[in-house]
């Protein structure tokens, strides 16, 4: 098994906007160690979300290579990539992206279905996971019947259901009030510390980024710095705002 759960080698991503090519990533190398908590920050339009998409196998790079669990994604077809993504990576999005006509339980069962797990087992795992994020009493509620913080917890449960190595979070607190945001950040923190999940999180806010062990700063499609966060005791406690 490779030391790095995700690796980007000289990755570029170019979009053709009409006649004009837009170089969003201009050759980046990133290595994410197993069990690491990494934040990606940068100003708007810096390419941080594109980097996250590329690293998580949602987007294929224009040039360069992405390795997930040591396997080159360029050698996988879309179906194989979807399978690897579903197995290795759990996604948490800024706007939750839950399916509104399904209950919380059914939303969490969905990725397990894609992995070919039997319905009985899916139901059991999904219920257990929702209980672990504190939503044991909300299993049969639909997303529209839940608060923002609760929805994000359903999304986290969905990301955790397949027991992936990596949790990818894109501005996970962006749509939440400060209290709910703090709860979600603590939850992500715990997933890293207690369960050893690798966390890859995009945020534009410094104090959120500092919850990580390492911050990758990106600007104009190039990595500006990759710094270890020196943690004081206060920071480690999680003083969200």
């Amino acid at each position: 098994m490779s030391d790095f759960v995700i690796e980007a080698r000289n990755v570029t991503k170019t979009y053709e906007l009409g006649e004009v090519p837009v170089h969003v990533l201009k050759g980046v190398d990133v290595q994410i160690k197993r069990g690491e908590f990494v934040s990606i920050t940068g100003p708007s339009g810096s390419g941080k979300t594109t980097l996250l998409d590329v690293l998580s196998g949602l987007l294929r790079p224009t040039r360069g290579e992405i390795l997930i669990d040591g396997k080159k994604i360029s050698e996988m077809d879309d179906n194989a990539l979807a399978h690897v993504r579903g197995k290795t990576i759990g996604f948490v999005f800024q706007s939750f992206h839950l399916i509104n006509r399904l209950t919380a339980l059914e939303n969490v069962m969905l990725p397990l279905w894609f992995q070919g797990i039997s319905e009985e087992e899916r139901r059991e795992i999904a219920a257990r996971t929702l209980i672990s994020v504190g939503l044991g009493d909300r299993l049969h509620h639909r997303p529209t019947e839940l608060s923002g913080g609760q929805r994000q917890r359903v999304a986290i449960a969905r990301a955790l259901a397949t027991d992936p190595d990596v949790i990818v979070a894109d501005e996970p607190t962006g749509n939440l009030d400060s209290q709910s945001g703090a709860t979600i950040l603590n939850m992500i923190d715990e997933l890293n510390k207690k369960e050893g999940k690798t966390i890859l999180m995009v945020t534009h806010e410094r104090y959120v980024a500092e919850r990580a062990e390492r911050i990758i700063h990106i600007k104009d499609g190039l990595i500006q710095s990759s710094e270890k966060v020196r943690k004081t005791k206060e920071k480690a406690k999680g003083d969200y705002k």
Partner: peptide, 16 residues
């Protein structure tokens, strides 16, 4: 559209 995006992100294959 969004739902299809989510389903694909969390592991639904093109075939599915």
């Amino acid at each position: 559209t969004q739902e299809i995006g989510v389903m694909k992100a969390i592991g639904a294959t093109t075939t599915l």
